[in-house]
Structure formats: C-alpha cells, structure tokens
Write a protein that binds this DNA or RNA. Sequence first.
DNA 1: TCAGCTTACGCCGAGCGTAAATATG
DNA 2: CATATTTACGCTCGGCGTAAGCTGA
Lengths: 306, 306
Amino acid sequence: MDPHLLRTFVAVATTGSFSAAASELGYTQSAVSQHIAALEQTLGIAVLNRRPVTPTLAGERLLEHAGAILLRIEAARADVLRVVGEPPGAIVFAATPLAGAARVARALTRLRQDRPGLSVTFAVADRDEVARGVASGTYHLGLIDGVAAPSDPLKLPDVGPLRTSAVAQEKLAVVVPEEHPLAARRRIGLRALVDARWIDAPVVSAALDDLRAAVETDSLRPALTYTGADLLTLLELVAAGHGLAVLPVSAPVPAGVRRIIVDTPRLVHRTELLHGHLAEPAATALIGVLSSTSERSGPSGGSVVE
Amino acid sequence: MDPHLLRTFVAVATTGSFSAAASELGYTQSAVSQHIAALEQTLGIAVLNRRPVTPTLAGERLLEHAGAILLRIEAARADVLRVVGEPPGAIVFAATPLAGAARVARALTRLRQDRPGLSVTFAVADRDEVARGVASGTYHLGLIDGVAAPSDPLKLPDVGPLRTSAVAQEKLAVVVPEEHPLAARRRIGLRALVDARWIDAPVVSAALDDLRAAVETDSLRPALTYTGADLLTLLELVAAGHGLAVLPVSAPVPAGVRRIIVDTPRLVHRTELLHGHLAEPAATALIGVLSSTSERSGPSGGSVVE
DNA sequence: TCAGCTTACGCCGAGCGTAAATATG
DNA sequence: CATATTTACGCTCGGCGTAAGCTGA
C-alpha cells in the first residue's frame, strides 16, 4: 500500500491503460506493470482485469480509498509546510458560485487598501473542489456555500482537518417563473412544493439532496439536472418553465423570475470560509475582512440576512 | 511522506525517544534516526526537537495527520480484503457501553440459533475506538451510540467510508440523586438545567459537548469529568450528589437516583450499527437480527422508544 | 499480426545494521 | 562522564529501464 503504487493504480484505472498511465507518470510501461503486480501481490488479490483494463471488484473498493489517501497525504504536507509561513506575494482564492462574488469583491477592495502590492488569484469551483484545493494547499482560502440547519456546519468531503468559520447565514428563496401560479406569494413552505417540477443544480443552487434531508421526504424529484456553474443559465431555465430552484435570498434575480421566501424553519443558506491551520498574514487579513463583512450574531458567528 | 516514515515518526513522538521507538518497531536506533532525518529533509523543516524529544510546531501538525493517514491506509486494506469474503468461523464485535448490551445479548441469542457453531468475541470500547476498529478490520461489526437530532446520523471520526444503519432512537433522561429538588418531576427541558452541576462522562453518558451543541449555549460546565467506561460508577457519582448526567431512557437506573425525561425537542439518543462495505455472511445475519430488534419508523429506520 | 501487458535481467540507489563519532545534561 | 542521537560505511535488496517474451482481438 505504498502511495506510489496507489498513485499508479489510480492512473491505470482512470486511463484504462498501463501504457497511458506510464507516460502520464513518467514511467516505462514495464514499471507500471511491476507496480500493479506488487500491489496485487501484497494485497493477495487482483485489482485490475486486463484486456480490457478495468478495475475488479476489489479494485473498485481500492479506487474509492486511493484518491482520498493520496489527497490526505498532500493535505498533510501542505499543512505542515504552512507553519513555515513564507509570506506570499500572491494569494490564491476559490469560491463556489453562490458563495457571494459580491462579498468577495468587497473584501478584496478592503484588502487592496491595506496591502497595495498584493496579487490575488480568484477561481470558481464546486464545493468538493474548493475543499480539496484548500486542504492540499492549491488555494490559500476558500469560500463555500450550502444548505444546513442554522449554526450547523456544512458537511465537507473527508479531506482532513480544515478550519472553517461562518461568514453569513441567510434565508432561502424559491425562484419561479413570473407566470407561475404561486409567483405572487411572498412566502411558502418547502413541503407545499414537494410535487413541483424541480431543477437540480447542485453547483449553482441548493442541491435537492440537501433539501430532501431537511424536509424529510423522498420526493423532490428533479425534472432537469443542471451541472454547470453559471447562475444565469439556471435562472433562464427557471424562467423558461423547466422547473423551480432554491437559492439564497441575496442571489440576484433577473426579470422573468420571481423570488418566494422559503419559511421552512431550521433551513438556511450558509456561507463558510475555509482555510488551513495557520493562514499566512495576507490570508489572516482576508479572513478578518470577510468575517467583518457581516455582523456576528449567535455563538457560531455570521449574521442572518433576510 | 512514506507511510513507513510516518509510522516511525508517530512512534518517536509518542514514546519521546528514538531508541524506544526503534525497539517498538523492530528497527535499530540508527534506522529510526535516518527515518526522521529523511522525513525532515523531504519536508524541508524539522519535526522533532532533540533532548528532550518533543514534536516541533510542524511536528505537531504532522502528528495530527499521520495517525489518520495510517489508519486510512489500514482501512483501505481491510476494505479491499473484505471482497475476498472468507467466511469467518468467528465474529468480532464491539460496542460502546451505552449502545445496549441488552440489545446485543438478545441479538446474539437469535444468531446462535441460526448458526450454532459460531464463535463470537465481544468487546467494549469508546466511540472512536469502535469506529477505528471496524474501519481497519479489527472488528467485524460495531455498535455505537450518541446524541443527535432525530434521524441525523452520528458524527464519526474521519476514518473512511463505513456503512451505518440506525438501530434505535430513544428519548434522553437526566439522572439526578433522589434527594434532588427536581427528583419528583417527570419531564424537564435541558435549558432549565444549564446552571446545574454536571458530570461529563463522554464514554458512559451523553457528552456535554453534544448537549451544548443542541442547546446552543456555552454553559453546561462540568463539575466533574469521568472518563471511565463503567456506567455503575457514573450512577454512584450521581447518587452521591457530584452532579447530573444525561442517559438514554432505557439505561438501567439503580436505587438512589431518579430519572427525569428530557423533553428538549430535536434531541434523541441514537444507536447505530457500523460495518464495512461488504459484510461477511455471519455479519449480515447479525445486522438483520439487530435491525429487526426494533421496528422501523421513519425514512432512516430505527424506532423511537419512550 | 500486432498492440499491449508480462517477464528476464542488469544496474543503481535506497535503506538497514554495525560501529565509531558527537553532543548534551 | 553517561546516555542518547548522529554520522560513516558496507552490504543487500528493491525498483527502474531495456529488451525479449507472451497473449488475446
């Protein structure tokens, strides 16, 4: 279970070819073959079928672990190296689409005033990607969003210990096309909508899975799934009547769709800041700026915006 | 970041000595020294202070990761080997003290009827220990308990993917000495007790941390902490007036203490069964027996006992 | 037949132990 | 000065590449 062997195994399993994995990793085909042979020998069980190259049952189980293990090792290295704390001239930043580009923009403005020379890179990615990136040191800071019970932390993928701090909590809103029969309503409970047509857009809206867990129902079946990262596209799909979606109330809503506040209790949109154990000075400053963007309320911080 | 080096590092850091770690691992002192040197060289930072041997700041960070990584690797191996599925003549079983020895006893009786030759080992451990043991294959099955919101899964240590299934949910009770002013009450809210004297016994009662999270208060300060695994000792401490504790209502209560049902909503005692991805036939049978011990109710299974 | 994985074999370096050197309290 | 870690050094074995062998579509 040498990490090198695991890395090779992952490469072979994902490419479906020993030779492709070899060139990807900078090995010869022979070395890759030996790696897999060694892995199978120590485990005492075959992990790959040959011709065509596919994972065996055992290999599928191993594949599920291997990525996590390699990531965990990367995260450990990044975490240890953070204590050296070289002050970066640049800061790399990632956020999920709904985590509030507006909030980030405001924070960066404040940060620029304090540290004029600082170069900032800003990336958008989905929640897992942000968490993985922050853990492994690719990003210095991450901003993620999701649906949870008030003051409950968001569920993160198993990526090792990360510091999180709540940045904001706000109510949820259902977005509906303006000709929708309910469009005139100001508030509604989610349970009243379990049989509506839904768009599942886990990247740019509340994932239906999260809503389902909160409503404790097995329905909320998606009529359409949108995996893209563009909020405007989702809103156009809603306007065109393809289904409803749930967003934080602060999300911008263009013409053609209406926003109905969700008054299901114990269900809020939450934004959290993710960072490593010891953040660099610039990051620390940014944490301060982001956190102070909204007033604190309650023991776990963050404000509730309606 | 070779796992061998990590293992050596953990041994040195925990024993506080190169030579002790060497004999523990079956290496020479020299090899251990070389391991640590290699680790520090690849990381580019010292992880141990010498004379006395203590982890540096970076070493403390590494230590936090190293155990988890090694455990994760063990868990992966165990998980892969489970697909071979040799039918064990013996089954090894672990449970937390409050997870219901009575329930286990009943299940084992049923199991014995089906499989007379089966040898069963039963161990008691705390929650983390059970989770770690099941993940790494030491135990085939684990039964854990804890406090959570109804139908919320228990929080597990980061130990890799484990299958869990709810076995039971029941209400909580505060146990108080019989001369306590509130002893005659049948029900009480936790908030009314935030300023009481508490005993924090995370192994054999609801951990105060869990209660605090649910009550959303920073108080509930422990007057006494009991880390032992013996429920009777805890109850004697309660009877002697050292403080209150929260238990599931089904816990046996001897003379000298009274039980007051906690009617704080959204707070239940939950018992879950833990097992690996593919359980062996015997384990599968036991899962069935344990799960059918109580009727199912609600989408996530398990019954609510008052 | 041939593309692609496996096996044979030789070389180099990693890693261990023995033993001498060194540092600390 | 005693105890404990580091360094020197030689040996063995693991792991990689080259090249030949094998096998299924």
